[in-house]
Simulated assay, not measured.
Amino acid sequence: MAKRPNPRAIKAARTYTVEEAAIALGVSIGTIRSWVKSGLPLMKSQRPFLILGGALRGFLEGRAKAAKAPLQADQLYCLSCKAGRTPMGLMVDCIPQTPKTARLLGLCEVCGGTCNRIISQTKIDQFSRIFEIAIKEGRQA
């Protein structure tokens, strides 16, 4: 089962039964039914109830967009809190990931868990004005 269904797996010009939509997205039938209860429109004029592909795709894209919360400049994403948090003492480690990206790692002020943020290596100087950065060696892909 997919954690986040891919809206591109749905053809916008097609109609789907609840079962077909579940198979196309790799989710359970119950998941599709819960989406219907939370606002996914159905064509109820005949049975089996049909879901317009465009409506399903729009519903999934809307949910994904609503779930995203951009981080402020002084925040990293806390994996425990599942929210943007300021690292303890504004101290972070910078670990190169690829030739173009680096990962900022710190400790959450709220729970003490790991916080991280992927940034462009060209922006390390910009973030060094906000955070106290210690550059570590990392493996590049």
Rank of each mutant, 00 (worst) to 15 (best):
R4N: 11
R4P: 01
R4L: 14
N6E: 12
N6I: 01
P7R: 03
P7F: 07
P7S: 06
P7T: 02
R8L: 12
A9W: 06
A9H: 10
A9R: 15
I10T: 02
I10D: 02
A12F: 05
A13G: 09
T15K: 15
Y16G: 04
Y16F: 15
V18G: 00
V18H: 00
E19G: 07
E19L: 15
E20M: 09
E20A: 15
E20N: 10
A21P: 01
A21E: 00
A22R: 02
A24I: 04
A24W: 01
V27C: 08
V27S: 02
S28V: 02
I29A: 14
I29E: 10
I29W: 08
G30W: 02
G30S: 14
G30Y: 00
I32N: 05
R33K: 14
R33I: 10
S34R: 15
V36E: 14
V36W: 03
K37D: 15
K37E: 14
G39F: 06
G39E: 07
L40P: 00
P41H: 07
L42V: 15
M43S: 10
M43V: 12
M43K: 10
M43T: 10
M43D: 12
K44A: 11
K44C: 09
K44G: 06
K44I: 11
S45D: 14
S45V: 11
Q46T: 11
R47H: 11
